[in-house]
């Protein structure tokens, strides 16, 4: 198997990166994506519950808008966020250009429609009887919401994972607003795994780009496994 060995050999034998470099880009990737997804989730769940529970004119339109947001091109989001955080823009005074926090803003914008849209579908599929029962048992609105979240937890976990997948695999917007910065000492400031892969590929170093890709896949796998466990919870699995 010559093809396989030529791919595997560099993975095992040559390790062209400094550990500090690799650790720092993994850390930036996780920091940016996890914070963005956590904020998105906090924002998306109330919206999904509110929209899911109420009937109003224009609900279909709103749902369509959210679902359209799922496919929003990341480069465009990057440009819009760059415009916003630029020193000339409305958020200019926060000095966010070329920082990890600017990347969180753009990933928040990218992940929120995904998490909202998928959670909304999950929440809407919880049967009305369940909600009525919770209400009849004397639950407050918050209790009813929590029962719904519990019933829809697999769908919501999927939503969070989809948002995370969108955030951590995204390269267009973080490159624009983050600037792909690594200090001369080899620690990343705004370089993520994806922008590092892009940089390696741009210089024709496809093997190292593939290695970084493998690390990214493993990372996503680990986070998925963790969230799935969390979604099951203790006693929640009947």
């Amino acid at each position: 198997m010559t093809v396989e060995s030529s791919l595997v050999t560099p993975l095992l034998l040559e390790f062209p990166f400094e550990w500090t470099y690799l650790r720092s880009i993994v850390r930036v990737s996780l920091y940016v994506s996890l914070v963005a997804v956590a904020l998105s989730t906090l924002c998306s769940l109330p919206i999904a519950l509110a929209v899911g529970f109420t009937e109003f004119r224009g609900k279909t339109l709103l749902t369509s808008v959210i679902n359209t947001g799922m496919g929003f091109p990341s480069v465009v989001v990057g440009l819009v966020v760059l415009f916003a955080v630029s020193n000339q823009g409305p958020l200019g005074s926060f000095d966010l250009v070329f920082t990890a926090e600017a990347m969180i803003v753009s990933q928040f914008v990218l992940a929120t429609p995904v998490i909202t849209g998928v959670s909304l579908a999950a929440v809407s599929s919880v049967e009305r009887t369940v909600r009525d029962a919770a209400f009849a048992m004397g639950g407050t609105r918050v209790d009813v919401a929590l029962v719904t979240i519990k019933e829809a937890r697999y769908g919501i976990a999927t939503a969070v994972l989809a948002g995370f997948g969108r955030a951590i695999s995204e390269v267009g917007s973080v490159l624009i607003v983050g600037g792909n910065i690594v200090g001369p000492d080899g620690t990343s400031k705004t370089r993520t795994l994806t922008t590092a892969i892009q940089l390696e590929a741009r210089q024709g170093r496809f093997e190292t780009a593939m290695m970084l890709g493998a690390i990214l896949v493993v990372l996503v796998l680990v986070v998925n496994a963790f969230v799935v466990r969390l979604g099951r919870g203790d006693g929640g699995y009947r």
Binding site: T41, A100, L146
Partner: peptide
Amino acid sequence: MPIQRREVVAALGSTLAVGLAGCTVLG
């Protein structure tokens, strides 16, 4: 059916904790 608010809160809490852990590392 029992309303297990604590579990859900715990789940949300750990999600946040992960995010905050990231903050601390970068800070």
